[in-house]
Write a protein that binds this DNA or RNA. Structure first.
Lengths: 155, 155
DNA sequence: CTAATTCCTAGTAAATGACTCGGTTTTCTT
DNA sequence: AAGAAAACCGAGTCATTTACTAGGAATTAG
């Protein structure tokens, strides 16, 4: 039940973009260096985020990435879904409106109720928190926002 | 963010034991066949569950497995923790009381708040539902409780 | 004694995760 | 026009994890 690096790094990168909103396009290199992530790997994640409309890119020199929408309109759920796929602890109760009844005889599945509750609780947290919310909470806590090199972990 | 088969199969097996409570030890073979799972694989999961005290075993002919406690006292969280490890979307906000501050400068981690909320929401669902609850809800729904072979999915 | 059963260790094949590499295209700056 | 700074793209790789399988040893009811 862990996120992969795609979700974690992607969330970091999106928050970095949100923090630097208004400065014009931010080159990936800067994010990669300041957050201690591999630039070419981040590139792949940004590509997916761009295709999903969560970021915009500007090519060429002085180019970089920008948020695709206001931070108030980008939820953690948006980001996680793009990078980790539809949300759900098991395939058959997954988040996609299309693939509703993967289970034909789902009524005879005792544990299904549990997985559905779990899915709902996860989505409600993820869809209820925006990039703006996180930035706000961060400001309230008055964190020093240090670089990653100085830290012990890589969330 | 999916469970592995260990969590899914383990939950199934535990529910099977709960349903057959009072019948004496249930041999693994029966569970494996009726739920369509590999018996030797299940065996490994049961071994972990036994070491954690969630099931008891009776060796020899006419042996099998029994719940280690009343179904009212076994939560989904108990089972998932044994089979999938401590709960948490990222290592550094994991569920273990011991490994609290894996992050030394955790205050400077903007997304940490999010992961903590997510962890809490997951644990509160998982720890709030017992095997007894699930059986009860199942009975209320009046499900036919068919075998797995007839079904389209393997939750 | 024999058959049924749990217990234990090891091995393995496939999938996934977490990247790297090399080159192409676009665009700003000089 | 030239050069450099980016984003873009597709493939390849290496380690880890997952989901098992295999085979035998120990235990116990009948």
């Amino acid at each position: 039940m862990r996120l992969s690096t795609k979700g974690r790094y992607g969330m970091r990168a999106m928050l970095a973009l949100a923090q630097r909103r208004g400065e014009g396009p931010v080159p990936l290199k800067e994010i990669a260096v300041s957050k201690g992530l591999s630039e070419p790997y981040l590139e792949q994640l940004m590509s997916e985020l761009r295709k999903a409309g969560l970021v915009r890119s500007v090519r060429g020199a002085q180019g970089g990435y920008l948020l695709g929408r206001d931070p108030e309109n980008i939820t953690a759920g948006d980001i996680i879904r793009v990078l980790e796929g539809p949300i759900g602890p098991v395939q058959c109760v997954v988040d996609l409106p299309g693939s509703d009844d993967v289970c034909d005889l789902a009524d005879s599945c005792v544990e299904r109720v549990l997985w559905e509750k779990l899915r709902d609780s996860i989505t409600s947290v993820l869809d209820g928190i925006t990039l703006a919310n996180l930035l706000e909470e961060d400001k309230k806590l008055g964190s020093p926002n240090s670089n990653v090199e100085e830290r012990g972990c890589q969330p």
